[in-house]
């Protein structure tokens, strides 16, 4: 079981959640943040602080966003469980589920 970051985070990346996570398992991608399912301890601290309600317990993901569970899992296929996002830093990539979303026209 794990928490998952869904659509509203894309291109926003407010990162309020990162400061809350006691095990530093929220990793930064190019357009979204990703929760490492092998490192998340289900403490629920990130969920209430997200200003756009992007974070869900995996079983509670709204119907349209269930793909984000796969995105958060597969994002770590190569990375594994490095034991903390601070030591890894932001990645310049995204999972295809995120990468394929249209980029908003810059204002």
């Amino acid at each position: 079981m794990t928490y998952v970051i869904a659509q509203p985070c894309v291109d926003l990346k407010d990162k309020a959640c990162v400061d809350e996570c006691p095990v530093d398992c929220i990793y930064e991608g190019a357009r979204k943040l990703y929760i490492n399912p092998d490192e998340c301890v289900d403490c629920g601290a990130c969920e209430p602080v997200c200003p756009v309600e992007a974070i869900y317990f995996e079983d509670d993901l709204p119907d349209g966003w269930t793909d984000f569970r796969r995105a958060d899992t597969e994002f770590f296929a190569d990375l594994g469980a490095p034991g903390g996002a601070a030591g890894v830093g932001p990645a310049d990539r995204d999972h295809p589920v995120v990468a394929e979303l249209p980029v908003p026209a810059s204002s």
Binding site: C21, V23, V41
Partner: peptide
């Protein structure tokens, strides 16, 4: 436990 409590990490 309260959200964010260190006990979750120990349990996991």
């Amino acid at each position: 436990w309260c959200p964010g409590c260190g006990d979750y990490a120990i349990l996991a």
